[in-house]
Amino acid sequence: MKRIIAVMVVMMSILMAALTIVTIQKGTVENAYASTFKEDGTKWRIGYCESEDFITFTETLIGIVHGLEELGWIRNLDGFDIVAYTRDSKAIWNYLANRDIGPYIEFVDDGFYNLRDEGVTPEDIVDRLQRNKDIDLMLVMGTQAGISLSTDDHDTNIFVFAASNAVRSGIIDSVEDSGKDHVWAHMDEQRFERQIKAFHDIVQFEKIGMVYEDSDIARVYSAVNEVEKLAKDKGFEIVRYHVDEPLRSEEYSRYYQEVQEAYNQLAQEVDAVFVTIASLESDKLPTLFTPFYEKKIPVFSQLGNIEVEHGALMTISVMDEVNLGRFGADTIGKYLEGTKPRDLEQSFQVAPKIILNAEVAQKIDFMIPFELIIVIDEVYENIAK
């Protein structure tokens, strides 16, 4: 009975959160921003920097583009959805940079950066921003990129998305005030706390396993502080193993061996696993998770849909890139109309979605409570191969 009540409470809290979400609406007419050209009459020049190749970064970029189109800032996106389907942020950028998308905005051809690309360093990007001053706004994706570019060494306007916790990582001073006139970062400060609390209320585990890199930045994007806080509140134990994230392609073999060894150990010690955001290729997950299937251990994904599709039991998705893109586009529009990034609202809570993999549930003999069944948003029938 206690478990049923707990499940009902957490589901109600999730639904209430969803009801309070602010959604940016469509409906802006063409030429609504005729007074917002740059003073010299040229287009606003936008650049982009991402921490690495990551599906959330690409989906957020796509969401922002669609949001800017809905608000009338850009147009002429014939064929964009075909390019977006590749989920290749560089290909998407090339498409945007080589089209006339209207009189207001230009996506700069050589303004795309991925910090994992060979020869790309944060220092060189900051130097370009300070020395050339040829970019008006940088779209920045991820914690590492946000930390690297939210510096006082330049004054180019920085808009940071998809950072795990922009306050804790030092990108901004607080939810209310970024602390720098040229810096803005999206914040949903309780999203990972909501995730892990929901998982505990549903599964009622006593020992949860985590594998992450032992570094300050990894603790932030792996939500370690949030899990530790809830462990104190709920009285469960955390069993953790540390691995070194791969920085180059030749390191992936070593990395996956370390992850598999850690998972093998965890399967002997825990009754639930929290898979943190990491450099795990989705097609390798069924093999990596095999020890958990054998021991009937539920696996919860911090990342979201793609890991549930490929072998995690469930997730409470906290990334709604469509509506986050609309919020981001609306925020960028306000900047283009004259508001400093520091003065813009940074907090936006996305609607959570419950996603489950039915094949995994069957593998581990997980009995889905009826109260959970009626609020599940999406079910994958099988593990993707």
Rank of each mutant, 00 (worst) to 15 (best):
I5N: 11
V9Q: 15
V10W: 09
T36I: 05
K38P: 09
I46C: 01
E50H: 09
S51V: 03
F57G: 03
L61A: 07
I62W: 03
G63L: 05
G67L: 07
E69W: 04
R75M: 12
V83L: 03
V83C: 01
G111S: 01
N114V: 01
D124M: 13
N132A: 12
L139N: 01
V140R: 00
A145V: 05
V160C: 10
A163Q: 08
A166F: 03
S169W: 05
S169L: 04
I171A: 04
S174D: 00
V175G: 09
S178T: 06
R194H: 11
I202Q: 07
I202M: 05
G209Q: 08
S215R: 11
A218I: 09
D233I: 10
V243F: 04
R248L: 14
R248D: 13
Y263D: 10
L266K: 08
L266N: 10
Q268C: 05
I277L: 12
K296D: 10
I297P: 05
I306G: 05
E309L: 01
A312Q: 07
T315A: 11
G328E: 13
D343Q: 13
F348L: 14
P352S: 02
I354H: 00
L356G: 02
L356A: 02
M367I: 15
E371H: 12
E371C: 07
I373W: 13
V375R: 11
I383C: 04
A384N: 12
